[in-house]
Amino acid sequence: MGPIDSWDDTALVSVSSDADLLASLRAGQVEALRTLYQRYGRLVYTLSRRILHSDEEAEEITQDVFLTLWKKDAYKAERGSLSRYLVVLARSRSIDKLRSQVAHRQRLHKWHLMMADHPSTPLDIATLGERGERTRQALKTLSDKERQVIHIAYYEGLSQSEIAQRLGIPVGTVKSRSRQALRKLRQTLETRL
């Protein structure tokens, strides 16, 4: 049993740029949406599932994110990459959903039980797949405490004071530690480019 290796399902399907696909999408071509889903769907789904610990809810969020991309012309290239837009949207909607569930802390964390077997092929490993390895390596350069604060802030949507309470450290330390961690991450990721 093991997870699949790549974020990108489109290695064999399309070499169109995001910009080309978005132009087709805006012209109403649903196949462009399909290709973008094949390119980024796994990232959006995995992130939502990590936050919500639920297959069904991650599926809802994923559909919602891509339908939003389809229906609303909200993405602006000058404000960053499409990948970031989708990640930010997925994270924000997942955390909203998490917060709306009063008893979410009591939920069973099924994350590790839900790993599905899926064969991987060398063709799966494309540019997007490399991002995974690069980011994993970059996160390893952080100290345990820095990594912990980034993970809690990113995936659990807790406020600074809630993180401080959880970790038993002052709010100021949460802020400085997370900011320092992000700074190091950027430095490492850019050095590895």
Binding site: R42, V87, V88, T135, Y154
Partner: peptide, 10 residues
């Protein structure tokens, strides 16, 4: 926004 790329793709 790169942080979730470190997750195991599902």
């Amino acid at each position: 926004a790169m942080v979730p790329y470190a997750l195991e793709p599902q």
